[in-house]
């Protein structure tokens, strides 16, 4: 018992970055998320796990208001980043998404060059003063994406020509190039082979230094490997949230236990 307290303190050293209270999401008439309360810490990797259709991706997409792009989706409740309600009328989702980057399930590089892919965000947000500045931002982002060494000689080759794992790391580099504070990752490794997965997981661990990372994953092993905190979703409910070690070794809720022992999935 003492051990866990120690561990918990260790994690909660970092301040709360995202605070969600009483979040509900509806798709048309059906409710996809009910009553979710969660605090997500800065400089921490938080994993969302749960069976398919449990609402973990839906909740993730609430955090940068990607659900706005779906006509039928409706979100109620309160989500705050650094204390500011992101569903406030004054908040422009464009500014929010610059602050909360996102990496998707399938690598989706734009049909442009590697350089232009990474420079896209800084350009639209006006982060660079001149070409040299932009070059610097691109290089730094590619380095953070752990792909610089592989692509530095062919920055002007199309991004779609890279391998799947490289494409996903390019997308991560693209996301960090806008200097976000939070990085959302929606099953970033599900379309990758094991070697590429290992590379991306390693990268995620490094990203923890600078960002609050939220990762949705299907794989419990992955959650255990990369995250410090884990939330288990089931049928639209947040069933259990706590330190990753606790969730996997001493689940409180019988549903969590069933899931991690493979009885529901």
């Amino acid at each position: 018992m003492k051990d866990t307290e120690m561990l918990e303190q260790n994690v909660t050293n970092h301040p709360v970055k995202i605070a969600a209270r009483n979040v509900q999401v509806y798709y048309g008439d059906s409710q996809a998320i009910r009553d979710v309360d969660i605090d997500i810490n800065d400089k921490t990797v938080t994993a969302f796990i749960g069976p398919s259709g449990c609402g973990k991706s839906t909740f993730l997409r609430c955090i940068n208001r990607m659900n706005d792009t779906i006509d039928a989706a409706r979100v109620t409740g309160d989500i705050r980043i650094d204390g500011e309600d992101i569903y406030d009328k004054r908040v422009d989702p464009v500014q929010l998404r610059a602050k909360v980057g996102m990496v998707f399930q399938k690598p989706n590089p734009f049909p442009k060059s590697i350089y232009d892919n990474v420079a896209y965000g800084p350009r639209i947000h006006g982060l660079a003063q001149n070409k040299a500045d932009l070059d610097g931002i691109v290089e730094q982002a590619l380095r953070r994406g752990a792909i610089w060494d592989e692509v530095k000689d062919r920055l002007h080759a199309p991004g779609t020509g890279l391998s799947g794992g490289q494409q996903q790391r390019l997308c991560i580099a693209r996301a960090v190039a806008t200097e976000p504070e939070v990085l959302l990752m929606d099953e970033p490794c599900s379309a990758l082979d094991p070697i590429a997965t290992a590379q991306v997981e390693e990268l995620i661990d490094e990203l923890r230094q600078n960002y609050s990372v939220v990762i949705v994953t299907h794989s419990m092993q992955q959650a255990a490997r990369v995250s410090q905190k884990t939330a288990f979703f089931h049928l639209g409910n947040l069933v259990e949230f706590g330190d990753t070690d606790d969730i996997f070794t001493r689940p409180q809720d019988p549903r969590t236990e069933s899931y991690i022992t493979g009885r529901i999935g």
Binding site: N108, P111, G121
Partner: peptide
């Protein structure tokens, strides 16, 4: 997915259309 990628980076819809959708 391309539109999502662009929105996820904080692009407005017209930026997404002009710089991602139309070139694609």
């Amino acid at each position: 997915s391309l539109r999502d990628g662009s929105f996820g980076l904080g692009a407005t819809q017209s930026e997404t259309i002009r710089q991602v959708v139309i070139p694609a």
